[in-house]
Design a protein around this nucleic acid. Sequence first.
DNA 1: CAGTGAGCGAGCTTCCGCTTGACTT
Length: 870
Amino acid sequence: MDHTLVIVESPTKAKTIRRFLPPNYEVLASMGHVRDLPKGAAEIPASVKKEKWSRIGVNTTEDFEPLYIVPKEKKKVVKDLKNALKDATQLLLATDEDREGESISWHLMQILKPKIPTKRMVFHEITKKAINKALDETREIDMELVQAQETRRILDRLFGYELSPLLWKKVAPRLSAGRVQSVSVRLLVNKERERRAFKKASYWGLKATLLKDNISFESKLFSLNAQKISNGSDFDEKTGNLKKGNKSLILNEDRAKSLLKTLSKEKWKVLRVEKKPTIRKPVPPFTTSTLQQEANRKLRLSARETMRCAQGLYEKGFITYMRTDSVHLSEQAIRAARECVNSKYGKEYLSSSARQFNSNARNAQEAHEAIRPAGEVFKTPNDTDLSGRDLSLYELIWKRTVASQMAEAKLTMINAEIEVGEGLFKSSGKSIDFAGFFRAYVEGSDDPSASLEQQEVILPDLTQGSVLEVDSKEATYHETKSPARYTEAALVKVLEKEGIGRPSTYASIIGTIVDRGYANISSNSLSPTFTAFAVTALLEEHFPDLVDTTFTAKMESSLDEISSGNLEWLPYLETFYKGKNGLEVKVQKTEGDIDGKAYRQVDFDDLPCVVRIGSNGPWLEGVKIDESGNEIQAKGNLPMDITPGDLDKKKVDQILSGPSDLGTDPKTGEQVFLRFGPYGPYVQLGNTEEDKAKPRRASLPKELKTDDLTLLEALELLSLPKLLGEHPEGGIVEADRGRFGPYIKWIKNEDESENRSLKKEDDVFKVDLKRALEILAMPKLGRGGQEVIKDFGKPKELKDKIQILNGRYGLYIKCGKTNVSLPKDTDLEKFTLDNALVLLEEKMKDKNSSVFKKNKVISKKTLKNKKSKK
DNA sequence: CAGTGAGCGAGCTTCCGCTTGACTT
C-alpha cells in the first residue's frame, strides 16, 4: 500500500493542507528546526566537551564543522517523525521555500535518513490547484541554499559566542552581543545621545482665526518683509540655533506682541490661492513588521502581544500565517478582498484593477503571503465570534487587506496666502473629493500630529483680493522638542528597513535587549541603560564594522551569492573569523589590550562625573563642594528609573549632595540617612559630629534597592547586632550581618568568640536563641571547610586518598589536588571506588599532573593519540 | 567617602531563526 509522509513546519499548516491531499497522505509538522548548535554546556555531548571549540559548537580548527544536536524539546518530534516514516513508502519535505525552510528539510534528511524515495516540494498558496502543482513539480534539496543557511548560522554563533565572553570580562557577567541585538542597542544608544546633545530652541509666532462666509479657519504668520519667520524645522538640534545658512527670522516675545498690535491696523487681504489635486494610494497588506507597528500604534499592543494574538487567530483559521515578510496577495485573496469592497462599499470603491504590491524591505525572503483574512471568502469582523483584543486585531487585518484593493482617495490641497501689511500669513486646507480606501483604513503614524490624513480641513471659498474678517489673533510660544525615543514599533520599522532580524524574531529582539538589561520600556518607549552605553562604546571602538547598521545587509548579499553558487562559504567564514583581521584574533587582542575599568564606566562630556557600572547596578562618581567650599570626592546611587538621557547637571548635584533623609527614628528622634560609601550604599542613624561617638551604620544588603528603601527597613538594619540571649555555657549570643551575609556570634568572653553563618532558610531579624544554639551546636566544618561524606582511602596505585566531599556546589570527589563534581543523579549508595576512578581519570585527560603513577599517564597519552588519528 | 566574622572543587553565562506545547500555579 502506498503511503506518503509529508512534513511541514507548523501543525496548523499540516491540518490545512491535509484537506487537499489524497487519503493515503499523512502530514506531520517538524515544529521549526529540529537540530541546532548546542546552546550551552548542558547540551554539549560529553565526547567533545574536552575540545576547546566545543563551547562554541563549531569546530573552528576544522573548516568550521558545526556540531549539531537535537535539542531536548525536539526529541519527541524527531521520535514521532521517525515512527511515522516506518510505514511510509514516500517522503515529501514541504517546508518553506526560503533559506531556513530549505535547511530544515536538509536537517530532516540527515536525522531521519529515509530509505524510501524522498522529494522536496514547495508551495506558496494552500489551494487544491497550488498543491497539485507542487506535487507534480517536486525537486531535490537545494544544497547551495542550505549552505547559505549554515553559513548564516555559524557566523551568528561566532559573533555572539566570541563577543559575549569579552563583555563578561570587560563589563559585566551574563551580558550578550549579537549581530542583531548589538545593532539594535546601538540604535537606542545613538538616539539617546541625540537627546542628550539636544539644545532646546524657543521662538514665537503669530496665529489668527479668520472668517469668511461664516466659516472660520486658521492662519499662521509665514514671513515678514519677505523674510521667513523661523519655525521648529529651522533650528539645529545640536546647537539650539538656526541651522547653518538658515536666514529665517526668530521672533521673540516682545517682537511678536508688538507685531500683533501693528498688524491689527492692517487689512487682511487674500493674495493668492492655490488648489492642487492629489491622490493617496492604500498601503500594502500587512507583513509581520507592519502588523506589529500598527498594533502598537493603534491598539497599544507590544510586539509580543501582537504575535501571541495573531498566533491564536492563525490557529483558529481566521488569518493566514503571521510570520511573513511578503506583501504579496494570492489571486484567491485579491478576489475575496474585492468581493468585500463590492458588497460593503460598492463598485465605485474598487480599484480599477487588482492591486499587487512589491516588498521594498531589504532581505525579504517571501516564503509566505501577506497577513490577511484566511480563506476564499473573508469573514467580516462582525460575522466572527471574536471579542476583545482578538477582534480588534482581526479587524485591523481585515480592513488593511480590503483597503488594499480599494480605489485611490482623491483630495484637493488648498494653500492660501494672506497679505497683512508687511506680513504674509498662510493657511492650508484639504478637501476630500472621493474618500476611496479612506473609508476602510488609514495607516497610523508615529507622530500623532501627522495622523490626520483622512480628515478634511475646510477653507471657505477664497478669491484673490478679497478682504477677510479677523475673529481672533494671538502671539504663540513654541519650543523645539528633543528627538523621541524609539517605540517598539519604530525600532521594528528601522530593523526591517535595514534587513536586520526576521519576522519570527522582531518580538524577541526587544525581549532580549530588555532581559539583558540594555533597555527599559516605559510609556511605550525604549530607553537604553547605562550598561547599553558602556557596551556600545566598547563595541563601536573595537568592532565598528560589526555594529554598523549595514553589517547584516552585507552579510545577506554574501549569503545570496553563496546560495546562487557565486561565492564559496568557507573562504567567506575564514575572512570573517580567521587571520589578522578576523574576529578570533581581534577578540584576543582586545581582551589583552583594553582595561575593563574603562568600559565599566560611562563618561559624559557635559557632566562633572562618571557613571560606573557596579555589581549593584550603576552609580555616580564625581565631586561636590563641601561647606567650606572645597571640592571633595562624592558618590551617589542612581535611582532605578533614571536613564542616561535624564542625567543633567542638576540631577547629578542632587544625587551627589546627599545624604538623603529617610525619616526620623521614633525611638531616638534622630534622623536616618541613606548614604553611599566605598563599599556601596549604607544607612546611618544620626549626624556625624565631632566629639561624639560615631553614628550607627549598616550596609544595605544586595537585595534591598536604594530607591525604594523604607524607613522601617533602614531601622531594622540599624537594629543589628541583635542580642539573642545568654549561652548555656556562658557568654552571650548575637545575630548580625557582615561581609559574608547574616551570621551568629557567640561572644564567650572578652577575647574569645565563635561565629557561624546563618543558613539560607534563616532570617537574621527573626532568628531566636534556640535556633542560634542549634546552629552553634553544628560541628565546624573540617579543615578546608568541607564535610567528608565518604572516604575510599588511598588505593595502591595512587599518591593520594580518594574522598567524597560535600561542598558549596554539591558533592564532589577529591583526590590530591584533583576535584570532580559528581553528576547530579548519582546514587551515593551504589557509588564505588571504581566509579570514582573513572571520573578522576576523565578529569585528568588534559592535565599534565596526574593522580596516577607514571606508567598510567603514558597509557593515557597513547590512547589519546590513537583517538586523534582517527 | 563606613566597618567587619570564614575560607573554599568551579563552571556557566552568550548568538539568530524556525516552530509549539510542556511545565508550573
